[in-house]
């Protein structure tokens, strides 16, 4: 187990992991054309629908949460004391 951790701590490996991540994204976009699709709604069958939808919804969730937190919900840790 320790050897695995040491291996991952090498700087080149970190970079490689990042490139692997990007490569997997591209691979997924390509794979989509190789599988037979049966979407529940016609518009859900567009190419890369899931990718775009996932990315955008996360971006919106983060933005909305942060704004809500900043202007309303987040208080100091001693708020209730």
């Amino acid at each position: 187990m320790n050897k695995i951790i040491e291996y991952f701590e090498r700087p080149n490996v970190g970079k490689a992991v990042r490139y692997l991540f990007y490569a997997s994204l591209v691979l997924l976009l390509i794979l989509e054309f190789l599988v037979e699709k049966h979407p529940y709604f016609p518009w859900a069958g567009f190419p890369a629908f899931n990718a775009v939808y996932g990315f955008l919804s996360c971006a919106i969730i983060i933005a909305v949460s942060k704004l809500l937190g900043k202007f309303w919900l987040q208080k100091g840790e001693d708020y209730y004391d």
């Binding site: 994204l25 997924l28 599988v35 990718a51 996932g54 996360c58 983060i62 708020y79």
Partner: peptide, 29 residues
């Protein structure tokens, strides 16, 4: 493939927006 696309691109969004997700020492109402 659809589920993996959804998840991996969410991960992309997470790491791209990481600086906005900085942890704050707050409690949430």
């Amino acid at each position: 493939v659809g589920q993996l696309q959804l998840l991996m691109f969410s991960a992309l969004a997470f790491f791209m927006l990481l600086k906005y997700l900085k942890r704050t020492e707050t409690l949430t109402m």
